[in-house]
Design a protein around this nucleic acid. Structure first.
Lengths: 347, 347
DNA sequence: CTGAAAGCGCTTACAG
DNA sequence: CTGAAAGCGCTTACAG
């Protein structure tokens, strides 16, 4: 006798592991003895609006939770053309993978604000779309993202590409200014402020320590600010050598000199160099940083530095993105943020 | 006369902004004069297998790209029940938001490997599911994730919850050991190694600098390792006070003493403290760190520390996750990684 | 070699 | 007050 086999329909459907069977809205409907329509309406709080009885709603709610029903956002998304997913564009290629770990603080702020609005954040590597030939990031290709926040030094060409793939695009700490959808720090003011703290402390000459070779808007602007101040105060200004690890000659670790660190990594480097030389920052040499990071607050709270709240900027960028998702034509005037000086003891 | 209005079907479909109309497979099919089936087959490289002629395939490819067709993964996902999205669980709540910024290095490694396999990474906050009452993370609720990598101190209860929501779960640098799907560093060995470098350098007593109050497996294990070595070598061992910013009495910055930093943040703090006191690490006091970070390599390459390649661990975790996506029953033996000593000049 | 059709899990306009 | 049906963009078993 032939074995009895269940008849198999034309389309068996996706295989799921037995232990993880997904409960769908249909099954909830069957269990509750109503239609999928009623379940959907009840679960989405549109019951009153349409007029489903309160008792039914509670019944359905209870049954859904007993069954362990969790809505599939895929169903929702394909229907509404919204994924509630926002991409965070970050630089992460082989060469400059660790270029700026402080970027993570931006991401934390972004993520926090997005989750509060029931959206989620996906990380997309910048290298992906910079070079069209290289795999251009499936998230972009494949219509996953409701919006994108580009984090870090993104130029006009790249921004245009991103914008084409995902119209709702915000630039956070980007490489150029535009009047809309752009969040930047006033780097020139930051450079000036750092240099000023050293001049005010009585240093007789300034040393600019870029630490990195790579040109960027932030570097150029901070450098401009430092030059501005040196000129105004009539202070001599020299430049330390660049390199992967900043090196500054011992002759510059002297009380007359004020070292201006380009960013928080370089600042920390200067502190450690001073330690290795036995020179006390503040007492034996002046040090100030154009940039702050949360980590500096924990590792070197005494450092004189210009404030930079990346977390708050991430939150602000998320808000722009959410506004654009709600209304693609939303007015999002750009913001240029000025950081104050954290006084410290090292200038 | 009444204005002529286009007849409107029962379901107008999602609204898209005019400038951003999505090209679907149907439109490509129409333009190419074939059926959607043929387009799908051709574009997914299954043409030869099924027997679509080479000429047709090239035709379709060309037309699709002329039209600017980009497949919607939503369509693919709902059909196949795979999103190719992997969640990275990170700790980000108001209290411990910046607990360990170095976690970002894990994420970079994860992301890199996932993208290479055409998957993407979404960041999910840990706080979301720790407290059921708090919004429990839509990504978990809503069947978005093919796999999850939990990053950082995740305990057994939490791991069980995560596992229930998403069966394919990997623990990266978690709070407990298990034989499968777990990637950890041998912290006890790390503590021992750091302490040993100081003993070998001739320090007569050791000072353990935890820097943080929060207990964790990593902290306990490193502390054990330090104690092991102190006992073996018969060296006195004291503990510095905890706090948000590590403080160590000036009396401990002396040549007889070897300071053992719990992690890279504390190590950096010790370097800056030494600087402020005018004591030279290595010459005037011994300092070694149980942990390394990429940033330390740039800010304090001279530091004696135990290696910790988070990027590589992120890559390894991504590989486990991918294996589990391919086969939910895949054998993923856990790995305990031992870091070597980076000699440096400060012990 | 190719196409019509079913179906994934939802939402919603429409008809009762 | 409630349900049957259409449709979002795909993939694939099946029939020609």
């Amino acid at each position: 006798m032939a074995a009895i086999r269940p008849s198999i329909g034309p389309m068996p459907g996706p295989k799921r592991s037995a232990g993880n069977r997904r409960i769908t809205i249909k099954e909830v409907a069957r269990a509750a003895g109503v239609s999928p329509t009623t379940v959907s309406l009840s679960l989405n709080g549109r019951a009153a609006e349409v007029g489903v009885s309160q008792a039914r709603v509670e019944d359905i709610r209870r049954i859904a939770s007993e069954l362990g029903y969790r809505p599939s956002l895929l169903g929702y998304s394909i229907r509404t053309d919204k994924t509630r997913l926002v991409g965070a564009l970050v630089r992460n290629n082989a060469k400059e993978r660790f270029f700026n770990l402080a970027a993570y603080e931006f991401l934390l702020g972004l993520n926090e604000r997005l989750e509060a609005a029931d959206h989620s954040m996906c990380v997309v590597r910048l290298g992906d779309i910079e070079d069209e030939a290289a795999s251009p990031g499936r998230l972009f290709r494949e219509h996953w993202l409701d919006a994108v926040v580009a984090v870090g030094p993104v130029g006009e060409d790249l921004a245009a590409k991103v914008n084409q793939a995902v119209p709702a695009t915000v630039l956070l700490d980007g490489a150029f200014w535009r009047d809309q959808r752009c969040l930047m720090r006033d780097e020139r003011a930051a450079g000036r402020l750092a240099a000023q703290s050293l001049a005010d402390a009585g240093r007789k000459r300034l040393v600019w320590v870029p630490g990195v070779r790579r040109a960027s808007r932030a570097l150029e602007d901070r450098w401009q600010g430092v030059q501005d101040l040196a000129r105004e105060r009539g202070l001599p200004l020299t430049v330390a050598e660049h390199g992967y690890v900043a090196q500054v000659p011992e002759a510059d670790f002297v009380p007359e000199a004020g070292l201006v660190a380009y960013n928080s990594v370089v600042a920390s480097r200067l502190g450690h160099l001073a330690a290795m030389l036995g020179r006390r920052p503040g007492a034996d040499v002046g040090i100030a940083s154009c940039e702050d990071s949360h980590e500096l607050g924990r590792t070197w709270p005494e450092l004189t530095r210009v404030q930079f709240d990346r977390f708050a900027m991430g939150v602000a960028a998320a808000e722009m993105a959410l506004a654009l998702i709600a209304d693609p034509q939303a007015d999002c005037p750009s913001r240029l943020l000025a950081g104050g000086l954290i006084a410290g003891k090292t200038a």
